[in-house]
Design a protein around this nucleic acid. Structure first.
Lengths: 340, 340
DNA sequence: AGGCATTGCTGGAACGTTCCAGCAAGAGCG
DNA sequence: CGCTCTTGCTGGAACGTTCCAGCAATGCCT
């Protein structure tokens, strides 16, 4: 005698099974479990129990089809910087928050986002640190679903439905103030070109701070995803010579090891001879030779905030165009101990 | 006069629209576009053109419902180590490969995987570096969908449908051979407890190598996601004293900065006084003071391989229980230059 | 020429859910 | 009592796709 495969693998229990077992119609079962509709409290309780006993799990596909929504949101990260653990933490913050609202988070493959079928696969999109020269961003914005950006998008085209922003200008000012207080007189800044809101804000803030304080900040442009080698070269040229920089702020945290290496090679002691800080906290800043002072962007919470805003937009509890602020914190460490 | 919202937002074009426009039945349209079924080549071509013109995009939900498959796979990463850029690269390798087969990749929130509705949300699962004490892994394995693990799972329960493994023993042997050749006589190994296949293999291999070469390898246990501080403490105690270690291999790449810091503090010059290597290559190893020799696990390709196997299993073109091998490469850098 | 397989297409029925109109029973009110 | 309003429930129709049975037309074989 053969085993019935279907019986063994016990094909999943449907809403109709629950309704039948509870002795009600599928509509009532649906209403009872879904929360909406008019159902007496006793019936609702009963149906809930039956569903639990039977191990009922709503079929996502059917629900999506009927509701014309997918229950998932997409996440796009800067293609150049997929390696930074900063984004890893951000992604996990977002996925946790999305989960709390019953949303799945699908990772968008760099290079394949081609707006095409996106709208039928996700209800909304998270676009983190959109760079103006990322060719996918316009497609994503035009995909026909709500989009929340992490930091503003400086390019044109369809406007995003929402954004979560950091006050990057303020954080750099805080960093520069801190360095000045610790004795820096010739600070330098390693920063990517103005292709992202973040970098652009840092550049502007550096200029403003220079004028206000009467202390010139030397600005050196580096790639968005700076390698240690590039950072080392840039730093070496900045700190060389008698009037070289006495403090280096690097915007990308990936640049930290390079900056430290250049300092070591030049015989400068980080923390006293040379102050070092980063605009993004991360493994590189926390775990280096001397630990490096950095702006903690709290990536996990940032991710949560982005997901929360998108979720609110989808639920209609946030107005399109909403902009929310995300707080940063300065982490002072050995690398800016000061000349004392 | 009011604009018709529906008309403006042009509700998406369905298969029936295509069929009507092409003058055929929906079945024929479906067959033509889906590739299967009996359709003449001319009709097929015609329907394809019409579909393209109309901008037809198949509705994922409807397809999922009918086919009883979701078109998505889930990715689970070790909850303790979500920060390592190693996993970031792996994830993006997987997402790219999945995309090539038309599969979406959904990131599984740590702590929320509770096997529950998983089976209706994904067609299969990728479980990377499953640790025996990760409470979610058994649920994932029992979720009722094919599971591919990256490295073997040492716990019991439902067996995974496939695995992609590295020969970690061989890579550690290569590393130790290399160190011995460069003059190391008292090597030490910083490695997590045997809760993961990777760490367990490294521990066994270290023992075997010791016996074979007659050179004792001091093994020190560290957490799976080692922090620099922990690594520094462990290293300090290992290299202290006259008969302290003359080479340190750290398994997790996150430990690298800590090892280097301890070396610096102890006045040992890395690369000559003290050789340093890591079992995982990553930003920490590539970007540190002296660059650190490491085993490149090629995470992106690893991710691709895992996704490829799962995809093959889903398509029936790989046998359940299949195990595939993933190749590593030794990256020799300054940190093991040798005593010369 | 008659039988039979093959080709190319069609209509209808699923898949499991949600939404809408509707209906019986009771409650409230003049 | 007759009228309306509300409550609690029901059945049917969608959502867009794929699959299956079937059917006319054609081609092949004896």
């Amino acid at each position: 005698m053969r085993l019935d495969f279907r019986a063994v693998t016990s094909r999943s229990v449907t809403l109709i099974d629950v309704a039948r077992a509870a002795g009600v119609s599928k509509s009532t079962a649906s209403n009872a479990l879904g929360g909406s509709g008019r159902v007496s409290e006793t019936t609702r309780e009963h149906i809930r129990n039956v569903a639990r006993e039977l191990g009922y799990r709503p079929n996502t596909a059917a629900r999506s089809l009927r509701r014309a929504s997918t229950g998932a949101i997409g996440l796009h990260l800067p293609r150049t910087a997929t390696r930074l653990d900063y984004y890893m933490n951000l992604a996990f913050g977002a996925v946790e928050r999305a989960r709390e609202d019953g949303l799945d988070l699908v990772l968008l493959a760099p290079g394949t986002a081609g707006g095409a079928g996106l709208a039928s696969r996700v209800d909304g999109l998270l676009v983190i640190d959109p760079e103006v020269d990322d060719p996918e961003v316009p497609d994503l914005l035009a995909a026909g679903v709500p989009v929340v950006t992490g930091e503003r998008y400086l390019g044109g085209g369809v406007a995003p439905s929402g954004a979560v922003v950091c006050d990057n200008a303020a954080s750099l000012v805080a960093l520069l103030d801190h360095l000045a207080e610790r004795g820096a007189r010739r600070p330098a800044l390693l920063v990517p070109g103005p292709g992202s809101d973040w970098a652009a804000a840092l550049r502007t803030a550096a200029g403003a701070w220079s004028r206000r304080e009467g202390i010139e900040v030397t600005v050196r442009t580096v790639p968005f995803a700076t390698t240690p080698v590039e950072a080392e070269a840039a730093t070496a040229s900045l700190i060389g010579g008698a009037s070289g920089a006495d403090a280096v702020v690097c915007a990308p945290d990936g640049a930290v090891p390079g900056v430290l290496a250049a300092a070591a090679r030049a015989g400068r002691r980080v923390g006293s001879d040379l102050l070092v800080a980063a605009c993004v906290d991360g493994a590189a800043a926390r775990g280096s030779g001397p630990q490096v002072t950095a702006v903690d962007l709290r990536p996990s919470e940032y991710g949560r905030a982005c997901a929360a805003l998108l979720s609110d937009l989808l639920a209609g509890s946030a107005e399109p165009g909403a902009v929310r602020r995300h707080e940063w914190a300065l982490k002072v460490r050995e690398s800016t101990a000061g000349r004392a």
